[in-house]
Design a protein around this nucleic acid. Structure first.
Length: 582
RNA sequence: CGGGGUGUGGCGCAGCUUGGUAGCGCACCCGCUUUGGGAGCGGGGGGCCGUGGGUUCAAAUCCCGCCACCCCGACCA
């Protein structure tokens, strides 16, 4: 394939577009790879579309290699399947909804679990048909509140989504493992740095889920990792639980006057005055935070979370735990006089208590731990209130913030926090969709069993952004060979016809050898402009045919390392091929 | 959805305070010169000034509404 710059549909920009902040967005627009077409939607220009198709090709090859089969659904879907799984409403405002001329409801697919499930139900009915993995590379639609960072978060984007179907849990484990292995190959081939982190496994299902995060400061997800190899999304981090302490010899609880101490800070100051030798810190206090849970059916439930006073509630972790319920600030203190703002204590909490308000505590609150906490009247706190002896709780919840230096749950050392962007997600769905849509097969005993499923996604357009984000310098893009829009960029400089003849011949030779060549054959364009464009566009190998030609040499340059070398004209093609093919 | 910022040829910006002919650089077209690091000179084409309303003899400019974009937050299998 020969791409001549004299005719290529391309215009590079000398200045950065003002509305692009992150490097990938800036460079992809400036280098003429993409163009904004709609809020959260981009047009792929010829070079950009070549990159896009290369990423797609890598994904497709590895999915095919692991035995998944490609299908393709419409993006425009009827309401009914999504009604059956309740997602027509549960998906909320992020779902693009529309009506046809008869007034029937349609949606633009944000993801396709329902359709895949129904397709398999339509055609298969026996355990002999399984296992099965199907995938598609599809345009997805999500009405994001705020599209941002160019290709990273659009309202229309391309995703590879696949789904596995198995008769039993062991089969699901195998399908999951196969996808995991395929994803590792894909991201390795794409040259994308990634961390596999445990993701939220769903509050009850016990289903397994991992995310492939690309570490980058512009990432939207926070994850933790330890030197010893533990990695998890913050939402999924488990707290190290201390050993319970025997009650023997623990002091009795005692109520103290602590006027004007509605905050942890003021409380600790007063506690230190009262008991200078006790060494009290914020961690000695038990903070009881009230929130309102809003369940999908609209019912509202107050919930109190008890946690050490030196930690804040992490709203993302909390929401991940209580999903699909949503969390709102609690405002109805007038309806609950037993909750004394700033002085709430566990004695009035719990489903068994008078208030009947559910009370969940941080895992650090184990039997025998002693706390300073509210006495349920203004200006008074209880000291030495012992967990398990003086108060109880309805359950434990992982809702406290995770901090750098916290221990990893597997003992592999202190945690550090980092940002990443989600490139892939593999998820053991289990039987949720199969049950909702009644996907069953006959087993070897002739009995109907519900199929168990996995769902697996890779953001294809997002991968293009991530690759650009992690492969550029101050001059422009630097594509990895596997996904570069061309293998080599041949630049002809000057006006000497001999230069263009030599560059032409070299380009044709390279194309004949199977390479894709981007050939800057523009006449009357100064060398400086061509060099700048070559660096901006970012082909991995740049060949300059110019003033060296008089001495019989051509210049080879590696875009990534900057190394350049003069080689004899006769050897140029072979040297380029060697460089391209590694 | 909350806070902040910005909307003027394809890109980057000035003009707005104090209402009166829409301007600069890049890019694009023509001519001549130039050709190894974003060339020079001359000539040219291209803009419902985001959008709707209002004030006014007159609005890019003043007032109100809306929309879009960017950033932070919220949201986001």
């Amino acid at each position: 394939m020969l791409l001549r710059m004299s005719t290529l549909f391309l215009r590079t920009l000398r200045d950065d577009p003002a509305d692009a902040e992150v490097p990938s967005h800036r460079l992809l627009v400036r280098a003429g790879y993409i163009r904004r077409a709609a809020p959260g939607g981009f047009t792929w220009l010829p070079l950009g579309f070549r990159v896009f198709r290369n990423v797609e090709r890598v994904v497709r090859e590895e999915m095919d290699a692991m035995g998944a089969q490609e299908v393709h659904f419409p993006a425009l879907l009827p309401r009914e399947p999504y009604e059956a799984t309740n997602r027509w409403t549960e998906y909320g405002p992020n779902l693009f909804r529309l009506k046809d001329r008869r007034g029937n409801d349609f949606l633009l697919g944000p993801t396709h679990e329902e359709m895949f499930t129904l397709l398999v139900k339509d055609l298969y009915g026996s355990y002999k048909d399984l296992p099965l993995s199907l995938y598609q590379i599809q345009t997805k639609y999500r009405d994001e509140a705020r599209p941002r960072a160019g290709l990273f978060r659009g309202r229309e984007f391309t995703m590879k989504d696949s789904y596995s179907f198995d008769v039993d849990d062991a089969g699901l484990d195998r399908s999951y493992a196969a996808h995991r292995a395929a994803y590792i190959k894909i991201f390795d081939r794409l040259g994308l740095d990634y961390v596999i982190v445990s993701a939220m496994s769903g509050a009850m299902g016990g289903s397994k889920s991992e995310e492939f995060l690309h570490p980058t400061p512009i990432g939207e997800d926070t994850f933790v990792r330890s030197a010893g190899g533990y990695a998890a999304n913050v939402e999924a981090v488990r707290t190290v639980v201390p050993e319970p302490i025997p009650f023997d010899g623990l002091p009795e609880a005692h109520v103290e006057d602590t006027p004007d101490t509605p905050t942890i800070e003021t409380l600790v100051a007063v506690a230190r005055q009262l008991f200078p030798d006790a060494g009290y810190t914020a961690a000695s206090t038990l903070k009881n935070v009230v929130v309102t849970l809003v369940h999908p059916d609209g019912t509202r439930e107050p919930l109190v979370i008890g946690l050490p006073g030196d930690r804040e509630v992490d709203e993302k972790r909390l929401e991940a735990q209580v999903a699909p319920a949503e969390v709102e600030p609690f405002t109805e203190f007038d309806k609950h006089p037993e909750l004394v703002k700033g002085y709430i204590g566990p004695q009035v909490l719990g489903e068994a208590s008078e208030s009947k308000i559910r009370y969940l505590v941080d895992p650090r609150v184990v039997p025998g731990t002693r706390w300073i906490t509210g006495a349920n009247e203004p200006g008074r706190h209880v000291f030495d209130l012992v967990a398990g002896r003086d108060f109880t709780w309805d359950g434990v919840i992982e809702a406290a913030e995770v901090r750098p230096g916290d221990p990893a749950p597997d003992g592999s050392g202190p945690l550090e926090l980092a940002r990443g962007v989600e490139m892939g997600h593999i998820f053991q769905l289990g039987r949720k969709y199969a049950e909702a849509l009644d996907l069953k097969v006959l087993d070897e005993n002739g009995k109907l069993v519900t199929v168990t499923m996995g769902s697996y996604g890779i953001g294809v357009s997002r991968a293009v952004a991530a690759i650009a984000e992690s492969n550029h310098d101050e001059l422009g893009l630097i594509w990895p060979r596997e996904i570069a829009p061309a293998d080599v960029h041949v630049v002809a400089t000057g006006k000497d016809p001999a230069v263009f003849e030599a560059a032409d011949a070299l380009s044709r030779e390279l194309v004949a050898a199977g390479l894709t060549v981007l050939y800057d054959d523009r006449p009357k364009v100064s060398p400086g402009v061509k060099f700048k464009d070559a660096e901006l566009l970012g082909m991995p190998t740049i060949v300059t045919v110019g003033r060296g030609l008089a001495e019989g040499t051509i210049e080879l340059r590696d875009r990534a390392t900057g190394e350049r070398e003069e080689v004899p004209v006769a050897e140029a093609a072979a040297r380029v091929l060697a460089a391209v093919r590694g």
